[in-house]
């Protein structure tokens, strides 16, 4: 419970810090810190915890990024309704949670890669949602778009081991073992 609460606080702080990090030069891709902490939570916590962190993550993201459209005063409408990020994050969180048995046994490599894939999927889904919402509907998939989508995933994959290590350490400090089935490593002769 302490770790769960701490994870929510860390997600909030990651969201703040995320605002201070500029896009990666040349790529234009963003470092999505909050989403990384959330995906770790989806992995380290059981189903109710996963749903709670994805709910909190989606709500915080939408509260800050729901866009208002309308050209004239008094014509403002929400572009993509609040709550869609919760659906997206919960779906991706479920995929992460599906790989939890492997994580419990002490493996993390595939999960780092999965963090990158899920991050790219989030950016792609956001792009598709706003493309379908805006008129005229035009699926522009040029190089800058792919760099933004893929770049975010690559950055997440590269940063994930560090995040997993630090958050595992924090979890153990709070008395929660995220990988209880991990066998102690022994040197085989």
């Amino acid at each position: 419970m302490v770790f769960f609460a701490l994870l929510l606080v860390l997600m909030f702080l990651a969201l703040v810090v995320q605002h201070l990090i500029a896009p990666v030069p040349m790529l234009g891709a963003r470092v999505l810190l909050m989403q990384m902490v959330m995906l770790y939570g989806a992995l380290a916590l059981p189903l109710p915890g996963m749903l709670a962190v994805t709910f909190a993550g989606g709500l915080m993201w939408d509260a800050l990024h729901t866009q208002w459209a309308g050209d004239n005063v008094g014509e403002r409408q929400v572009e993509i309704a609040m709550g869609w990020s919760i659906v997206l994050y919960a779906a991706l969180g479920t995929i992460m949670n599906g790989f939890r048995p492997l994580f419990l046994r002490g493996r993390w490599e595939i999960h780092c890669l999965l963090t990158g894939i899920c991050t790219s999927a989030m950016v792609l889904a956001e792009y598709l949602m706003l493309t379908l919402r805006r008129q005229p509907i035009a699926f522009v998939f040029d190089l800058p778009v792919w760099w933004k989508i893929g770049g975010a995933g690559v950055l997440a994959t590269l940063l994930a081991p560090l995040f997993f290590f630090l958050l595992n350490y924090v979890a153990l400090l709070t008395g929660y073992d995220p990988q209880p089935e991990q066998k102690p490593r022994t040197l085989q002769r």
Binding site: Q18, E126, Y127, A152
Partner: peptide
């Protein structure tokens, strides 16, 4: 005080 943290906005 901050610039947008999302990719598309």
């Amino acid at each position: 005080i901050a610039r947008d943290a999302s990719t598309w906005y």
